[in-house]
Amino acid sequence: MPAPELFADPIVEAKDVHFSFAQQSIYRGLNLLIPRGKVTVIMGASGCGKSTFLSLLGGRLQPSSGQVLFDGQSVAALSNNQLFAMRRKMGMLFQSSALLTDLSVFENVAFPLREQTDLPEALIRILVLLKLEMVGLRGARAVMPGELSGGMQRRVALARAIALDPKMVLYDEPFVGLDPISMGVIVKLIRELNDALGLTSIVVTHDVVEGRAIADYLYLLGGGKVIGQGTADEISRSTLPEVRQFMNGLPDGPVEYHYPATEYRRDLGLTPERAAR
């Protein structure tokens, strides 16, 4: 059971969320709370719907039933203007970084400031340089995104995500495809930014080591529900077979290795008589 003091004032709450996509059921009664001011990691196997949660939270998808609440408001019930107002309080780091490829690093970070505020150019310049300094890329301001490594692109995207000083930052698979050094840098940045700027961070990942290292609280999803939750140590001590299989990376366990298929011998055209021979 979650520690009560951690969840006295949750920033996000999912209440009995059901969601299907392309006739496939992704969530079957998802319930979770995201504590304010903490780094919460949502883990699960690929395809279990981790990133979908971020889309539901950002209002880009709507649940079939149930509610996702941000600051007590149901995201799906918001009008278009309210939704955009809510998104101004959120930053999001996409798996592909999603930098605008026709703009320089500086202009990418300046983009939300130019779009959402009427700040004078001199102030925008200072703000952008501040954010770029935080991610160590002030010197790369004039470079185009295509000229940067994947790790650096992700850092620029992180600077852009925090450009408007959001209350919460969503990270979609921030560790995928990074070399160990870049990975270490991103892990350090997520923690430092969260604590220094007083953010709430939600990190969606399937990387167990990094997820455990960074999490104040951890959820494990499987079968469209939360199958394990707690601090990293609590999750590690769990005796639930689903949790143990994921955390220890075991090929055999409750999560089947094989995609559902017809009986193997029949698929190969072997009749029972021929198989017996």
Binding site: G58, R60, F84, A85, R87, R88, M90, G91, M92, F94, Q95, S96, A98, L99, L100, T101, F111, P112, E115, Q116, A157, R160, L164, L170
Partner: peptide, 18 residues
């Protein structure tokens, strides 16, 4: 495909307008 439109939406910028 590179999620640039989604990123704009999440930055509260409407891609239909921008």
């Amino acid at each position: 495909a590179t999620e640039q439109l989604s990123a704009m939406e999440m930055m509260a910028v409407d891609p239909i307008v921008r």
